[in-house]
Computed example of a mutant assay.
Amino acid sequence: MTTTAEAIALVTAARTPGDLFDGPSPHRVYRALARLLHPDLAPGAEAAEAFTRLAELWAARGGAPETVITTGRGSYRLGGVLRHGATAVLYRSGPDTLLKIPRSHTDNDLMRREADALETIGRDGDPLLLPYVPRLVESFRHRSGGVERQANVISRVPDGFVGLDEIARRRPVLDARDVAWIWRRLLVAVGAAHRAGVVHGAVFGHHVLVHPVDHGLVLVDWSQSVPTGTPVTALVARHRDDYPPEVMARRPATPALDIQLATRCVAALMGDRAPVPIRRFVRGSLLAPPDDAWRLLAELDDLLDDLYGPRTYRPLRL
């Protein structure tokens, strides 16, 4: 096995960890495959998919050597891979922290954007609203395999949180009363960022995590974020068609962008079964999204009071 093409074929054909690592030198096999498939050395979608699959099989084998990264502020023991994102890998690094490392050093700027945004919100945001966004623990440069990457250590969302994409998969249509608390909390999350001068820029379902029972919400992945008034230049490729025209035209980003994308998220959860007044409210928020999440939240509360009366707790059953 001497070429990337051979490595891709070998990993693609593997169905279990044993198909790759049952020989006498599993660590040597893993390192050889990783070198041939690494995104920095083997560009292309096939190699990237094979590299991700290799990491999954190696983690499933349970034999990966323990890695400890030590910085001036602390040591982080890399556990298993929590998630392979399009541009970064999330590792468990402690009981309540995650280590986020870009898959390619060409995406170091995305990690810096996230670090800048979370640091700004943590410093300038309302302390009571900080649980709506991850906490930046540390950001540092990490060299491995001759390549330097920007790494972020962030607070880990507690167990039990589920992405809106996963909720939509389990329950294609939700009652508007179940969506109401998600909508309210999502407006609070973006509103807290806007008060600190940050636009998230990618409020999509897989970035919105909620707790169905406790009704918590955390808006994650701030790597596409920008300071208010700055054009959004890093887009989520699979949502390219969901961005409003002003983003594609590189116009300065305003809070209206996050509000419009957030409205799309909650509208998708309700489908066409929402009461007519709510559908009208959604339509207005999409056609002319305001620049003030708090004003929209007040208007939403008035609408919900008129429709449903005093608020009552509804667990979201998945």
Rank of each mutant, 00 (worst) to 15 (best):
G72D: 03
R195V: 06
L118Q: 07
A9Y: 09
H207E: 04
R156N: 05
L37N: 00
L316S: 07
L219T: 08
C265E: 14
P255V: 10
A7P: 02
L82N: 03
P315Y: 14
I121A: 06
A180R: 12
G74I: 01
A5D: 12
D19M: 04
R264G: 14
R103C: 03
P244H: 13
V188K: 04
H105Q: 09
S225W: 07
R73T: 05
L186C: 04
R112T: 10
P244I: 11
R177W: 07
V247I: 11
R123M: 07
E49P: 00
A189I: 05
P244F: 13
G94C: 05
W181M: 03
L307F: 14
H239S: 10
C265R: 09
P289S: 08
A13P: 06
S25F: 12
P290A: 09
V173E: 11
L304S: 07
A268T: 13
P244N: 09
A262Y: 10
H142I: 02
L78Q: 03
N152W: 06
G23V: 12
K100I: 01
A117H: 04
R61F: 09
V188P: 00
V208G: 02
G229W: 07
A189M: 04
A253D: 09
I69E: 01
R184D: 06
V153L: 03
V203H: 07
T70G: 00
A256H: 11
V190K: 03
A32S: 15
L54D: 04
R141Y: 03
M248Q: 15
A50H: 00
L36M: 01
G197L: 08
D214H: 14
